[in-house]
Design a protein around this nucleic acid. Structure first.
Length: 287
DNA sequence: AAGAGGCCCTGATAGC
DNA sequence: TGCTATCAGGGCCTCT
């Protein structure tokens, strides 16, 4: 489901809800996630106080009072719900589901607090929970990831150097978390449309000006998406509450066959499947 | 060693 | 109605 903006929205609402609160009990219903949940997973979280909820790229980091960390990745379909304990009613919505459509199936992990519980639901099970035991280990865990788009390290020098001698298109690089981390399939298309760059242009043919536009627009699109509360795509039934609004701002994503939104352009948005992911673009505006 | 492709898994939707 | 095929916001692993 989520790219960096959606994960950030989840982080904000989750932290608001659980910071300084103690986990009373942990229920594991299914440990077969992306990575199998370790057998002692519960013991690391039970009775811990939540110090804060952080995020790096598309990963949530729960800081536990004894210095350990609980790393969460939502994969493609992971969602987090907060449900009131006695009333069994959704009181905070961190996942774009409404109380009416709260799924019973695929609730794999539950963290029980005094008055509410946090439920992890994930039909496809591409997401995961992991215990990280030290800040050093946490750093190592993210070692393979490139800078976030907001990081000053994601600059013209870095990008130009990185692209030297690389024989791959720009869309693939925006999705490559080793190059820049946090961008996914929606925002990659949107960033390239805004930059007026053809998604399948090889990076070794990009000039400095184009690299500069990609850097600026990566920051711009993700910042705006966070401001809009993320994107809620695929229309769930009975949605309400904290549903994101950025899907209304899409210029190309899921707009195949529709008119280009650039002023004066009457071309229709195209969709092309490349390495199993769809890419949306305007042939006329993106060169 | 960079780059392409397959695979993990379930659910929604389209087409017959 | 009920089948089958295709597609989904991600990332890891293997092969060449």
């Amino acid at each position: 489901m989520p790219e960096l903006p959606e994960v950030e929205i989840v982080r904000q609402s989750l932290e608001k809800k659980i910071k300084h609160k103690r986990v009373k009990k942990v229920i594991v219903r299914n440990r077969n996630l992306r990575f199998k949940l370790s057998s002692n997973f519960r013991s690391y979280i039970q009775n811990q106080k939540i110090v804060k909820v952080g995020r790096f790229s598309k990963y949530l980091i729960i800081y536990l009072s004894d210095g350990h960390y609980c790393l969460i990745h939502l994969g493609m379909s992971g969602t987090i719900h907060i449900v009131n304990n006695n009333l069994s009613k959704v009181i905070t919505n961190t996942s774009f589901y409404s109380s009416q459509s709260l799924p019973k199936k695929h609730n794999h992990i539950e963290l029980l607090f005094d008055k509410f519980k946090v439920i992890y639901n994930d039909p496809r099970r591409f997401g995961f929970f992991q215990i990280i035991k030290s800040s050093l280990e946490l750093k190592k865990r993210f070692n393979h990831l490139g800078p976030e788009p907001f990081d000053p390290k994601y600059n013209l020098n870095y990008v130009c150097e990185y692209f030297k001698g690389k024989n791959k298109n720009i869309k693939s690089f925006l999705l490559d978390q080793k190059f820049v981390s946090g961008i996914g399939n929606i925002y990659a298309s949107e960033i390239l449309f805004l930059s007026k760059i053809y998604p399948f242009k090889m990076v070794n043919t990009l000039n400095k000006k184009e690299c500069h536009k990609i850097i600026l627009n990566s920051k711009k699109i993700l910042t705006k998406a966070i401001l809009y509360g993320g994107s809620s795509i695929r229309d769930f039934k009975n949605l309400h509450g904290t549903r994101g609004k950025f899907q209304n701002e899409f210029k190309v994503y899921q707009r195949e066959g529709k008119k280009c939104k650039n002023l004066g352009c009457f071309n229709l948005i195209k969709k092309k499947i490349f390495s199993n992911r769809s890419t949306f673009f305007c042939e006329f505006c993106q060169k």
